[in-house]
Structure formats: structure tokens, C-alpha cells
């Protein structure tokens, strides 16, 4: 069970990531890490989530872009 991100825009983007099959781990690095659903040999690079982003909207947009770029996501 991961913890909730303190910024609501980022939390909403994390939920979109999870719906697309990504795994979110909290308590890692600055806040947490998002893993793409691809297999070990062909997956997108993990995404490190900022716990105190200066612009939560832009942080959420970057998470959304990484979902959009990922060819392994659940449609």
C-alpha cells in the first residue's frame, strides 16, 4: 500500500498511471518511483516523483507525458 502524494494534482496523475498499469512505490528517493508495466528487457526508464514540486501542475503533466510515451501501458 503506497502513501498518498501531498499534492492533489500529482496524486490524480499517479492514479492515472496506476490505471494504465504502472506501479507506484512511495518512500523512495525524494517521494517515490513509477514503474512502467513493460517487461524487464523492454521497459521505459523508471520515473522519480518529486515530493514537494514547485509546480504540482507541471509535475502532473510530466507524469502524464511519461504515460503517453509508454508503449506498454494498458489501453
Amino acid at each position: 500500500m503506497r502513501s498518498k502524494h501531498p499534492k492533489k494534482q500529482v496524486e490524480a496523475a499517479l492514479k492515472r498511471a496506476e490505471q494504465a498499469g504502472f506501479r507506484v512505490e512511495s518512500g523512495r528517493g525524494h517521494w517515490g518511483v513509477i514503474y512502467c508495466p513493460g517487461r524487464e528487457v523492454a521497459k521505459c526508464p523508471p520515473f522519480s516523483v518529486n515530493g514537494t514540486p514547485s509546480s504540482p501542475d507541471n509535475e502532473a503533466k510530466r507524469i502524464d507525458r511519461s504515460i503517453a510515451r509508454c508503449p506498454h501501458k494498458t489501453p
Binding site: 522519480s48 518529486n50 507524469i63
Partner: peptide, 29 residues
């Protein structure tokens, strides 16, 4: 990734770190 995120996010605003990629490189968006 975790160590880099601690260093980068405290000093660089409005950017996201990804990696490592297959070749060991990192990406800062």
C-alpha cells in the same frame, strides 16, 4: 535514481528525473 532525485529535486525546480535507461543514462525533463 533515488540518490540522484534527492540531489536534483532540492536544487532544480520544475523538472522530473527518469532512469536508468538501458544504457545506464538518466533523463531530466
Amino acid at each position: 535514481l533515488d540518490a540522484l532525485s534527492l540531489e536534483l529535486y532540492e536544487r532544480i525546480d520544475d523538472a522530473s528525473l527518469m532512469g536508468p535507461d538501458d544504457d545506464g543514462s538518466f533523463l531530466l525533463e
